[in-house]
């Protein structure tokens, strides 16, 4: 069953076209990777789906969630879906958390908003979510402020916040880029488990092929605001059709070659 479908999605800022005819479908519980260099429009695609593009953006085309058109809907209607049917995990775990709000209130926020839970119940729920995402000592941790946590813990909080109301669609925008390699693997494992367990569809945005290979099987390669090619991860890795993809692969190999001596030490 199709959960998300975009068709000819085009976004312009004044004269500049930043997304050009993006079209793809995502079935319920399916995983799709969006890969491309910075500025290829992959993060914008995620924001467009949530309806969170800047006001001056002109959007055309179609985005359907559960068969219902999202484009042209009011902010109030969309905010009922955001954090409820669809949610997002951000790249920078520190800046994506309010520095003056206790972690528990941030995790429980969407629950109070969408399910009308009382403060007490939302906090209890936040504690169990914190436990679910592998945060240590959840009862005390929910009372901490974001700056008191490590980078990996903060991203776990971000994930807990996103999956709190069991969304059908989870958008992850470079969720591991700001973390060091060992923590990266843990966070990817966590996302993998949660998505499998909850049956959530995942749209995973990244520029890192190695990261992508750990979570998804199907890939969309983006460049300059367009979808350049799509297919299974294996096909893309073995027989990249587009020169842009080939270049991306070569750069990734070169990067891992440079990284190798360091890892050996």
């Amino acid at each position: 069953m199709t959960l998300l479908e975009t068709d000819d999605l085009t976004v312009r800022f004044g004269e500049k076209t930043v997304l050009d005819g993006i079209g793809f479908t995502l079935a319920a519980g399916e995983r799709l990777g969006l890969i491309g260099a910075s500025g290829s429009g992959k993060s914008l695609t995620a924001l467009a789906i949530l309806g969170l593009l800047p006001e001056e953006a002109q959007v055309r085309g179609s985005i359907r969630l559960d068969g219902v058109e999202l484009l042209g809907r009011g902010d109030r209607e969309l905010s009922r879906l955001r954090g409820n049917r669809m949610a997002m995990v951000f790249q920078e775990p520190l800046s994506a958390l309010n520095p003056l709000m206790r972690v528990g209130n941030q995790i429980g926020g969407p629950l109070r908003l969408h399910r009308g839970l009382s403060r007490k119940k939302a906090l209890a729920e936040a504690i169990s979510l914190a436990e679910q995402v592998g945060l240590p000592d959840p009862e005390n941790l929910v009372r901490a402020y974001p700056h008191q946590l490590s980078g990996g813990q903060r991203q776990r909080v971000g994930i807990a916040m996103a999956v709190a109301s069991r969304p059908a669609l989870l958008l992850a925008d470079e969720p591991t880029t700001a973390l060091d390699v060992t923590v990266q693997a843990e966070i990817l494992g966590l996302l993998d488990d949660l998505v499998t367990e909850q049956g959530t569809a995942l749209l995973f945005v990244t520029h890192d092929l190695a990261v992508l290979a750990q979570v998804v099987r199907r890939v969309l390669v983006m460049g300059e605001g367009r979808v350049l090619e799509s297919g299974s991860l294996e096909t893309i890795l073995r027989k990249p059709a587009h020169p842009y993809t080939r270049n991306l692969l070569e750069l990734a190999r070169a990067a891992s070659f440079h990284r190798a001596p360091e890892a050996a030490r």
Binding site: L50, D75, G83, M88, G109
Partner: peptide, 12 residues
């Protein structure tokens, strides 16, 4: 980002 994150979580 946390304001964007709050909006992504459905805050008015």
């Amino acid at each position: 980002d946390y304001v964007l994150a709050a909006r992504a979580a459905g805050a008015s």
